[in-house]
Amino acid sequence: MDDQLAISVRGLRKAYGDTTAVDGVDLTVSRGEVFALLGPNGAGKTTTVEILEGYRRRDAGEVSVLGIDPDHADDQWRTRVGIVLQGTGEFDDLTVAEVVHHFAGFYPAPDDPDKVIDRVGLVDKAKSRTHALSGGQKRRLDVALGIIGRPELLFLDEPTTGFDPEARREFWELIRDLAAAGTTIVLTTHYLDEAEALADRVGVITGGRLVEVAAPARLGNRENALTTVSWRTPTGEVERAESATPTALVGELAARFGGEVPGLTVTRPSLEDIYLRMIGHR
């Protein structure tokens, strides 16, 4: 096994009865990388991640996470892995501080609980009972519990669900800090901007298959995609041309119109256009 790889997956399959949830996924994640698994609901993101976390058993394929098959994971392995599950958890009548302090005790070298509570922005809620937190605040608690053990590898399953835009930006900063400190991060999301903002590489999963893995800027061959140039003809009709050399085309048009080109737009396909095309919406 390559020591540079945090995760290595080959031919991963998982079915629930007649429904195939994961259908032959191959995947590698390097140490220190931020990898986003992007896909619509029901694409197989959570199943894949929960197999990597050791929660679900696969039907077929080879999986190695930090050099260990998660089906045979032990407590030693779990000290190295942080997990933020999809659902938010409630700890009944315990306070935020109590829960974070308690979880810290499970790890050999935990982070300072009070510092972690601060990091996820729950200082003001440290003494609140967990059931009294808002959805976004519960999610922050989930993240706090995921990072309290100072994991080498952190899984985040749709971490920012329920966050307002500001909270999401703050969360992104936290992830960048963790990544800068060398933590390998695997997150699932259905937010494109999140994948684009955080990930070194994005894997697009749909129908249980990984349709592409690439850096966000290269996804769907985006950098080489043709640019659409449109303008209005003298008769008022909108004309459209796809070009690999849009600058030259615009120059040509400027010469033709003798200056300003009426109704000129130059559009590169957005990540969203490419993504929607990949998951089958056109």
């Binding site: 109590e98 302090h101 050999p108 070298a109 935990p110 601060d118 990091r119 200082v123 703050e170």
Partner: peptide
């Protein structure tokens, strides 16, 4: 996510570097 930080009143229950022994783990649970 750093806002102004106030120290929480909860005392630290962990000793960094070594995990709690079985008796301590059971009792605190």
């Amino acid at each position: 996510m750093t806002t102004t930080s106030r120290t929480s009143a909860t005392p630290a229950t962990t000793v960094p570097g070594r995990r709690l022994g079985p008796v301590a783990l059971g009792l605190r649970q």
